[in-house]
Simulated assay, not measured.
Amino acid sequence: MASSKNVVFDIVGTLVGYEKLFEAIEERLGERLKEHGVGPASLFGYTWIEVAEREYTYLSMSGLYRPYATVFEAIFWRMLYKAGVPEPRNFANEEDLAAIMAGYKAMELRPGAKECVQKLRDAGFTVYGFTMGDISRVGGYFKAGGLDWPAENLLSCDTRGVGKPDPEAYRPLLNQLSVAGKPWFAAAHMWDVSAARRTGFRGAYCSVWESEPLTDLFGGMDVLSDGLPEMADKIIAASQ
């Protein structure tokens, strides 16, 4: 039986930040990228993430689902080419890519993430995670950050082979949790939380990753916040 109060979090980008990935790109390729007029590493990394999300989503929509990390790694050479590197496989090698992917696996919880989750748990919420990432990698972020997360409360799009933001990705969890009241979906990606909200969740958005909510584009939210602990406070207040 579901709890009467439930919050589902996006994980990567919301509770987990990308800084370690950007640091790995800078350490491994930063100076070489600058020689081609490409920088900073965080901009290259952001573009890589965003394009990978698009390709992941398009593959899922077209019936050829692939895990997100597989897509992210596969398009590395294309991203270098589109960034202005004319011969990407002469510019970087497999060892460079492996080092960057190690940084990807070493990403850390955002400041305030543990406090946010604890506030909700202390207020009687059951907290779930729903990620495009694979369970073992995402679970590793929690373990490394000292955040206890029950295995049964961590779910991945990989299980059903349907990627966010397809409404069918959110619907099974929505149906499971709605038996005890309308659940929340919380994210720092407006495309994610807005899709979940249109599917039937209450929506909570934190601007820690994107800065601009763009509600005129994505629609209104039940909760808007600048920080993760603040988001938890507002979810709790709105649920009373």
Rank of each mutant, 00 (worst) to 15 (best):
V12P: 01
M231C: 06
S60G: 04
G220K: 12
L228S: 01
T14K: 00
T215A: 10
L224T: 13
S225A: 14
T199W: 04
Y56L: 06
K114I: 14
F72I: 05
N153I: 06
G200Y: 07
E53C: 04
G145V: 04
L64S: 10
A2R: 14
A102V: 08
M231K: 00
Y68C: 06
R28M: 08
G227L: 05
F76D: 15
K5I: 10
G203F: 00
N93C: 13
E50K: 14
N175E: 14
N93H: 09
A188V: 06
P167G: 02
P111R: 11
I100F: 07
F72C: 04
M221H: 09
A180K: 11
V162P: 02
P67K: 13
M190Y: 08
E35D: 13
W149P: 04
A98Y: 10
W209A: 07
V71R: 08
K119M: 03
V162I: 15
D122W: 00
V208H: 02
N153V: 05
F218M: 09
D192C: 02
G124F: 02
S207M: 01
T131Y: 05
N153Y: 10
A144H: 06
W149N: 07
V179C: 08
T57L: 11
I100Y: 04
S211M: 12
L15A: 03
A180E: 08
L64Y: 14
R121C: 08
Y68A: 06
G219Q: 06
G140P: 14
R66A: 06
F125R: 02
F142V: 08
D222I: 01
L109G: 04
K164M: 02
E23R: 04
H189P: 01
V127E: 01
R198Q: 11
A151V: 10
R160T: 11
R137N: 13
V8F: 07
E73T: 10
T14Q: 01
W77H: 13
K234D: 00
P150N: 12
R66N: 04
R89D: 15
V8A: 08
M79Y: 07
W48P: 01
R110D: 03
K34V: 09
T159C: 03
F44W: 12
S207L: 02
N175V: 05
E115H: 06
L43V: 13
